[in-house]
Design a protein around this nucleic acid. Sequence first.
DNA 1: GTTGAGCGTT
Length: 254
Amino acid sequence: MSHFGRTGPPDIADTYSLLVLNITFRTSADDLFPLFDKYGKVVDIFIPRDRRTGESRGFAFVRYKYAEEAQKAVDRLDGRVVDGREMAVQFAKYGPNAERIHQGRIIEKVPGIKGSSRSRSPRRRYRDDYHRDREYRRSRSRSVDRYERDRYRQRERDYRHRSRSRSLSPDYDRDRGRGRDRKHHRRSPSVDSASPARRSPSPHRKESPRRSLSPTKGSPERRVRNERSPTPRSRSPPGREMDSRSPSPRVDED
DNA sequence: GTTGAGCGTT
């Protein structure tokens, strides 16, 4: 009964799916089972997880046998703090087939569901997604795992820069930096006085990695380009221009 | 080791 991690959906015909959002990344189906099972008969619980990392995405689907129980769970578990995080329980709008499910009638009977008027918001995955995706694609062949790529594409297509949490506080950095300084700053006594500027020792600008080798490092001609006065001899002061043409090689320079 | 809006699998 507790085996929710089996393969494939059991029977979604007579079951109602509830979407649980805002749950911790460490919350598993077994952890949600006792919570949802207390309010009704849970048929199955499924938590989508990454295919590469294998970690939870932060949301889960709970299927109830009866709609009334599911609705009660939504009203009771919605806003419940689990593992220090407030999870949001609401009826799923779309089914596994990316289509609307037949649970709409439940909303009609109980017009008190919070998930009934849920505005569409730009969804995004974790921040590692694009980081990992970049290296992933670059390392992977373009003709491999097209299925996965296609799946993730539909998700990233709605990617949008949203306002990140303003959880960052000056106190946090200050506290953290100070704490670490106390313990790790004692290993280098010379750095304390011989490091007025920790700037990059090489003022040279970082060129492109591909051009980093600079194959023309032994080409003196390149550096002898026209700087400003490539030919100091060509300097002709005003009034002395005739001097240059003067047949007399007399140097009148002082 | 991390993250935080959203809609799902053998």
